[in-house]
């Protein structure tokens, strides 16, 4: 039952993506690339890029995209619902606890403990994405020098701009997209 599987996968993503922003990314990759054969790593990388360029959280964007690919519009609705349902229950429960007890020391403690784990997972997912960008595959190939040197150049430039001048990430995405098209059109060696 594909809809049930979609729902369950995105419930897990919604339930365990703690820390916002990119925390959902490793979980989404795990569910839709590793556990279920719904997207290839290349398609997943595309989804993350598209999600960055459009409004809305990565998890919701991915739920919609994967849902459509797997089960059409009903699939998108089921996946999105699965993604939001756990948050709905937990947020309101936490709000209730918060207004009763004024303070969430243990919850904060759990979050503090989770933060390094979440960072580790983002780092790992980021590395996979980087390999995908450099080699067109998610694992390091036998000949690691078979790099896409233009991609390495774009990455280095983007990373430098972000670290040095804290450029808006949207400009980095747009810039690297446009430059990549130029590289394609112009006959570089």
């Amino acid at each position: 039952m594909i809809f049930w599987q979609l729902f369950l996968s995105f419930v897990q993503i919604g339930l365990f993506s703690i820390g916002g922003g990119y925390a959902a990314m490793p979980l989404i990759q795990h569910q839709v690339v590793d556990v279920h054969p719904w997207l290839t790593m290349g398609q997943f990388a595309d989804v993350i890029a598209i999600a960055e360029m459009t409004p809305g959280p990565i998890a919701i964007n991915s739920a919609t995209f994967v849902g459509i690919q797997v089960g059409g519009l009903p699939g998108a609705l089921v996946a999105t619902l699965g993604c939001v349902a756990p948050a709905f229950v937990i947020v309101l429960t936490l709000a209730w606890v918060y207004y009763r007890c004024r303070g969430l020391t243990l919850v904060q403690g759990v979050l503090d403990g989770l933060r390094p784990a979440v960072v580790a997972m983002i780092a790992s997912a980021g590395l996979t994405l980087l390999l995908q960008a450099f080699y067109g595959q998610r694992e390091l190939p036998a000949d690691w020098t078979a790099l896409d040197w233009k991609a390495v150049l774009l990455f280095a430039a983007g990373f430098f701009l972000l670290r040095k001048w804290k450029v808006n990430p949207l400009w980095i995405l747009a810039g690297s997209g446009v430059l990549s098209v130029l590289f394609f059109l112009l006959p570089f060696p």
């Binding site: 890029a49 960055e52 980021g126 994405l129 990455f155 990373f159 995405l173 747009a174």
Partner: peptide, 19 residues
Amino acid sequence: ALLGGMVVGVAAVIADVTV
């Protein structure tokens, strides 16, 4: 080509966030 370039951009953004 556009999407491929954007994926490289995302990789740079995530590297920055991770650091």
